[in-house]
Amino acid sequence: MRNLQTTEEFHELTKESAAIFMFTAGWCPDCRVIDPVMPEVQKAFPDHTFVSVDRDQFIDLCIEQNVYGIPSFLAYAHGQETGRFVSKDRKTQAEIEGFISNLPK
């Protein structure tokens, strides 16, 4: 998973055909729980670009995107938000894969 470098990069990546942004932080224990399964999730959805967004580094972007709990996921395609899995609750691999599977094609 690539790491977001700039807010401008976020806005550019939203224009891709399928981008999934994972909002996370190094201190977040629920984020660390899903880290080991994310390579499998990415492998299951090779047509998607996966990007890690450090909540502490991009707090203004989190506010702009109404992401207040982590880990959270935003999906974009061609500049439009196609889905969000946003909460402060722990997420399972099955829940993450279900979220991505149910995104509009």
Results as ranks from 00 to 15, higher is better:
75 A>W: 04
30 D>K: 13
85 F>M: 13
65 Q>T: 04
60 D>W: 03
46 P>W: 04
37 V>I: 14
96 I>G: 00
53 V>I: 13
92 T>Q: 03
6 T>E: 06
48 H>K: 15
4 L>V: 09
36 P>R: 03
18 A>F: 15
23 F>A: 09
84 R>H: 12
39 P>A: 13
53 V>F: 01
57 Q>F: 00
35 D>Q: 12
18 A>W: 10
73 F>K: 01
13 L>E: 04
61 L>T: 00
21 F>C: 10
47 D>L: 11
1 M>F: 12
62 C>N: 11
38 M>E: 04
49 T>Q: 12
15 K>T: 10
69 G>Y: 05
91 K>E: 02
18 A>M: 15
21 F>Q: 06
16 E>H: 13
46 P>M: 00
32 R>G: 04
33 V>C: 09
47 D>K: 15
4 L>C: 08
14 T>A: 03
101 S>L: 02
69 G>V: 06
12 E>C: 01
75 A>E: 03
43 K>T: 14
46 P>G: 11
87 S>R: 02
58 F>P: 08
76 Y>T: 06
14 T>N: 07
52 S>T: 12
63 I>S: 13
100 I>K: 09
85 F>T: 04
68 Y>V: 05
91 K>M: 05
5 Q>S: 14
76 Y>H: 09
69 G>E: 10
38 M>P: 04
8 E>A: 14
55 R>P: 02
46 P>K: 06
54 D>C: 07
57 Q>D: 13
4 L>E: 13
70 I>E: 06
105 K>C: 03
99 F>W: 07
19 A>G: 04
8 E>I: 11
97 E>D: 10
89 D>N: 14
30 D>C: 06
14 T>C: 13
54 D>F: 02
13 L>V: 08
63 I>F: 07
8 E>C: 01
70 I>R: 00
99 F>D: 00
46 P>T: 07
76 Y>L: 11
34 I>M: 11
30 D>E: 12
23 F>P: 00
19 A>D: 06
99 F>H: 08
103 L>N: 07
62 C>E: 07
43 K>C: 04
51 V>C: 09
97 E>T: 12
87 S>N: 09
16 E>N: 14
36 P>W: 05
4 L>P: 08
88 K>V: 03
91 K>T: 00
96 I>C: 04
61 L>R: 01
100 I>R: 06
68 Y>C: 02
49 T>H: 10
1 M>I: 14
56 D>W: 00
3 N>E: 15
99 F>S: 09
20 I>K: 08
71 P>G: 10
84 R>Y: 07
5 Q>D: 11
84 R>S: 12
5 Q>H: 05
15 K>V: 01
32 R>H: 09
62 C>T: 01
46 P>C: 08
7 T>R: 10
26 G>S: 13
99 F>G: 06
100 I>E: 01
49 T>L: 15
28 C>R: 03
